[in-house]
Amino acid sequence: MGTIAIPHLTRAPSRRRAMPGFGLTLGFTLSYLSLIVLIPLAALAFNAAGLGVGGIWKVLNTSQVINALKLSFGGALVAAAINAVFGSLIAWTFVRYDFPGKRALQAMIDLPFALPTAVAGIALTALYSVPTVPSPAQGWLGVPLEALGVKVAYTQLGVIVAMTFISLPFVVRTLEPVLEQIDRQYEEAAATLGATRWQAVSRIVFPALQPALLTGTALAFARAVGEYGSIIFIAGNLPNLTQIAPLLIAINLDQHEIGAATAIAAAMLALSFAILFAINLLQAWVRRSERKSA
């Protein structure tokens, strides 16, 4: 090359053209997204549309399906509520206090994300069930709980325990960074004005955490609704009682009842997307209120 070409001096390019890769990344991102996510989900929508509203309703309107949907959504609601309370306390402890072993506990919080759900499922079952034959680790919690009159394994309570386990990290992980960013001056201001510690926490800190708490709780709920692997072992899967909706889908697929599986899946997805939409609205609201206060 005899002369050095300096194209951006001779022809002022737009910002988009100055940065290479728009066409390549846009093309790849959209095709991959379409192939892996959009077309498969469209296939579900297409199949569901083929059934028609009447067809879907016919599948849903059986006690077994209704009870399963109720358990999946109701159980997830309870699990999310439990996590909202306990997760807040744990996040508070992690952010505000220093104590030996904190780093280990913080690492442990993500265990439900890292541990494969099937492993969690059989471990929870072993832990909470009452062994019929002697078994080394089986019944560590199940036996004492049964002595107290509480049955966990193979009951709806077991479903809630598994759902709580699997969605625990969401609230803690969403709250931690927000709590870290809250300036202590607000609490000091409340104290100089005569507020008790509880009043400062409930009236000053809690409102600041509320958007993040809602987001974390909604994420936990969404995860618990669709959860399958960790639940099916501990649930016992009795029709109308401890069957969750994803299990009914799996059973129908197993029996080549594609239509029934499609109908239940469509119902679940419709509800889940409504939740996703709500989460996004919430996050936009959080971002807006943060920008306002900046």
Partner: peptide, 19 residues
């Protein structure tokens, strides 16, 4: 305690409650 002292404290960045 802070509460019992009843001092009017104005913080450098005011610490007004945003909500």
């Amino acid at each position: 305690s802070v509460q019992e002292r009843r001092v009017g404290f104005v913080f450098q960045h005011y610490a007004l409650f945003k909500h």
